[in-house]
Simulated assay, not measured.
Amino acid sequence: MLLEVKNLRVHYGKVEAVKGVSLSLRQGQIITLIGANGAGKSSILKAISGLVRPSGGEVLYEGRRIDGQPPNRVVEMGIVNVPEGRRLFKLMTVRENLRLGAYLDRDSRRVADGIEEVFDRFPILREKQHQPSGKLSGGQQQMVAIGRALMARPKVLLMDEPSLGLSPKMIDEIAALIVELRKAGLSIVLVEQNANLALHLADHGYVLETGSIALEGPSDRLLSDPEVARAYLGA
Rank of each mutant, 00 (worst) to 15 (best):
I34P: 03
I34N: 05
N37G: 13
N37E: 15
N37I: 14
A39T: 03
G40H: 01
K41F: 05
S43V: 01
K46W: 07
G50E: 06
L51N: 08
V52R: 09
R53S: 06
R53L: 07
S55Y: 03
S55R: 02
G56K: 00
G57A: 10
R64S: 11
R64G: 15
Q69M: 12
P71W: 01
N72R: 03
N72S: 02
R73L: 10
I79W: 01
V80N: 09
V82F: 13
P83R: 07
P83H: 07
R86H: 15
F89G: 03
F89C: 11
F89M: 05
K90N: 12
K90G: 11
L91T: 02
M92A: 09
T93V: 03
R95Q: 15
E96K: 03
N97D: 09
R99N: 11
R99S: 11
A102L: 09
L104N: 11
R106G: 07
D107K: 00
S108T: 04
R110I: 13
R110T: 06
V111K: 02
V111E: 14
G114C: 14
G114N: 14
G114S: 13
E117A: 11
F119N: 08
D120A: 15
P123W: 11
L125F: 00
R126I: 03
E127L: 14
K128G: 10
Q129P: 05
Q131T: 10
Q131R: 15
P132I: 05
G134S: 07
K135H: 10
G139Y: 09
Q140H: 03
I146C: 13
G147D: 09
L150I: 09
A152D: 08
R153M: 02
P154D: 05
K155A: 08
K155C: 09
K155P: 04
V156M: 05
L157Q: 09
L157G: 02
L158D: 07
D160I: 07
M170C: 07
I171N: 00
